[in-house]
Design a protein around this nucleic acid. Structure first.
Lengths: 219, 219
DNA sequence: TTTATATTCTGCAATATTTAGCCAATTTTG
DNA sequence: CAAAATTGGCTAAATATTGCAGAATATAAA
């Protein structure tokens, strides 16, 4: 999904050699109609019709599909901005096709890891743990150091999003399954979570000023 | 991009043999209009219309594209100066075409290495390291020798810019995503960074008088 | 329907960050 | 060495971001 046909050709070749199947879209509008059938997306920051950033935002309203951004060095665009917007990784032109493939594989490894984590082999099915925090996905119960913390469904979903990428800072609109709510609303949920966990002397969420929030170390 | 047509011919031959594609510009002004489509640039220090140094500065206002300088021995221009100004490498005439090609390849290897470094095989994806300095891009956390240093977003972005080209001196206006702010503002950010890193006995930024700043050796 | 609970939003106060002016200290230049 | 240019650190104002207390709305339970 790059505006420059020749780059697309190179990408297609490299990805197909790595046994991915590739669909192309020459601009953001087309991309939006196709992304449902894809496993991941490579977006050029600069695209005709709709730029990569807008396209990413649109996609993120509906889906958490992995997105990798491409940009030229002179695009005045950097990793932070890319991540803020909801990208999973970011690559600057020029890059080697080999590196692109490596990045894509890394994204898959990462998301695959998560999915495995939720059904680990040791019988503790359906619970995800990170430090003292544990989320029971079936019972929708959160515990801290084995003590139950009663939270609502939205609050649980926010924690679920966090625990899926425990080291990552999320922007607000990434935290609620792409539902469009005001930033203050998210703050509100975060506030409630903090208050509830404070009752068991736990700090679960750090704020990342200018970006959003991040799961704390949970120790 | 050399003023002397015969040298250009030799360079073109050597580079094309090494499977690079070459665009020529007979002076700095022309070079400025062409550099967008290039992967790297070879600049002669002495060029008609606009000298190599000025051209490099102009290019550096927009791009971090690799630049290699050529100079004659009697140009009163030395390696240090070339690198400080924003060059990535520097070659004195006379030189063998083979050496030029080797240098160019080295530049590519270096920049590629960097990019790879950000997805190392050990699972610590999304962090860039240089010496004791590490930037966790996803978490937006800076560490020195594994100690967390709390910095703001702009400060983080400045470090990110630095670590992308750790040997290069940057002009102030290159450091903040092209945002137009006064030079004093940059100084201020740099000052804050220095103070914060001083608390863990670290020196992260050197000043390059008359140019701007550069990442320190980070040892 | 009524009641309770959960969710979202609004507006404002509290914080944190960014910016720029000032001037002394430092470095470079002539 | 003196003059000019540049930088560092301080300050304070301007901006931007976040936290929080209701209030309004939606949803579920009784």
């Amino acid at each position: 999904m790059d505006d420059d046909a020749s780059i697309r050709k190179v990408l297609r070749f490299a990805l197909e050699k790595a046994e991915f199947s590739v669909i192309e879209a020459e601009n953001g509008e087309v991309a939006l109609t196709l992304f449902h059938s894809a496993d991941f997306i490579v977006l050029d920051v600069m695209m005709p019709k709709m730029d990569g950033i807008k396209t990413c935002a649109k996609i993120r309203e509906h889906s958490a599909i992995p997105i990798l951004f491409l940009s030229s060095q002179d695009d005045e665009f950097d990793r932070i901005q890319g991540l803020e917007i909801g990208g999973d990784d970011y690559l600057t032109k020029p890059f080697s096709p080999r590196e692109l493939v490596a990045r894509v594989k890394a994204i898959f490894r990462r998301t695959a890891d998560h999915q495995l984590e939720s059904t680990p082999p040791d019988g503790s099915e359906g619970t995800i743990k990170y430090g003292k925090l544990a989320l029971d996905l079936k019972g929708v119960i959160a515990t801290w150091d084995s003590q139950v913390v009663t939270i609502t469904r939205s609050e649980f979903e926010i924690l679920e999003r966090f625990i899926g990428s425990p080291d990552r800072a999320f922007r607000r609109n990434e935290l609620m399954r792409g539902q469009v709510v005001s930033d203050r609303t998210i703050d509100s949920h975060i506030g409630h979570l903090r208050k509830k966990f404070a009752e068991v002397d736990a700090v679960v969420i750090d704020t990342v000023h200018g970006i959003g929030y991040r799961l704390s170390s949970c120790q």
